[in-house]
Design a binder for these strands. Structure first.
Length: 296
DNA sequence: AAGACGAAAGTGGTTGA
DNA sequence: TCAACAACTTTCGTCTT
């Protein structure tokens, strides 16, 4: 099923026989999609893991110097702490500022603080890729002595490339991960688009479907239906001018109801980063134009 | 009581004169 | 620079399950 979905989006995936089983359906065909960095079930489409670590030998090199270093062998540089230098960190040694040991009670407290600090710093694994990439951009820009606006442009280019490659990230996500305001990114985006003549395709709403569906714990058939709905309305000329996330959310909302796995408007709205009102508006349009008879 | 619905007003950004 | 505009949000009262 997801093999189909993956094909729909036109990605190459590799199927691997793994000992692992899908926690959802028990299926044994686990697919590694390196381009998306996702590990998914071949039977039901559940995304088991995102941003999988083993990206093969072709680790990224962002400039000639790095390329040279890495080509000579040795392990690729690992950024165990993507936020290094950007936020306050709590170290792992149970010592106070003078080096004296801390009481066990305090240690337990510190442990909890660390745990939550980590969770708050990087909310989801989805953001991790972004954070790492942007930290790398930041590092390269700093070591080359490049000014802030270059970094902004680079962050922006990263988002544009995500879209060209069919793995869109919202402005919100880029903004959160890079600490740059959406307004700034947007401005740099338009500038680059004109200056570099980069052809950035409009984001197809169906590209958001797997991401949202996974967050909502919806199966592959619901995703397929949602993508079908999107393609239909795409042909009808709806959608144009509409925010892709809202369209994807509405399609999933409808599809979930059709398959008896209904999610509330609020649930869908939350994962898609839009409001319930937007879902309602999109869903009303889809329902009307496609002549759907769904009772919700 | 929660969810769905839709009207009305507000927001931040774009476009075109 | 300003007004018109489109998409989306916020808020809120009402209806439905």
């Amino acid at each position: 099923m997801i093999g189909k979905t993956a094909n729909m989006i036109g990605k190459t995936v590799s199927v691997q026989a793994t000992a692992a089983k899908c926690p959802e359906c028990g299926g044994k065909r686990i697919i590694k999609d390196y381009e998306r960095g996702e590990l998914l079930c071949g039977s039901c489409g559940l995304i088991i893991a995102e941003n999988i670590e083993d990206m093969g030998p072709e680790w990224r090199a962002f400039d000639a110097e790095q390329k040279g270093k890495r080509a000579r062998g040795g392990a690729p540089i690992k950024y165990m702490r993507p936020n290094k230098g950007l936020v306050t960190e709590i170290d792992q040694y149970n010592r106070d500022i003078r080096g004296a040991k801390i009481s066990p009670k305090k240690q337990a407290q510190l442990y909890r603080i660390r745990k939550w600090h980590k969770r708050v710093s990087i909310a989801t694994s989805m953001e991790r890729n972004l954070v790492i990439a942007l930290a790398e951009l930041d590092r390269v820009a700093s070591s080359l002595g490049l000014p802030e606006n270059i970094k902004e442009s680079a962050a922006l280019l990263y988002s544009a490339i995500c879209r060209i490659q069919g793995i869109p990230r919202t402005l919100d996500e880029i903004s959160k991960a890079s600490g740059i305001e959406k307004k700034e990114i947007g401005r740099a985006y338009r500038f680059l688009k004109i200056e570099l003549n980069v052809d950035v395709p409009l984001t197809n709403p169906s590209q958001y479907v797997p991401k949202f569906a996974t967050a909502l714990r919806l199966g592959g058939s619901v995703q397929e239906e949602a993508i079908k709905l999107i393609n239909k309305s795409l042909r009808k000329g709806l959608i144009s001018g509409r925010g892709p996330t809202g369209v994807a959310a509405a399609a999933l909302y409808i599809a979930s109801a059709m398959f008896g796995e209904k999610r509330t408007q609020k649930e869908v709205a939350d994962v898609a980063g839009v409001t319930e009102v937007t879902i309602r508006n999109r869903y009303r349009e889809l329902k009307k134009e496609l002549g759907l008879k769904v009772n919700l």
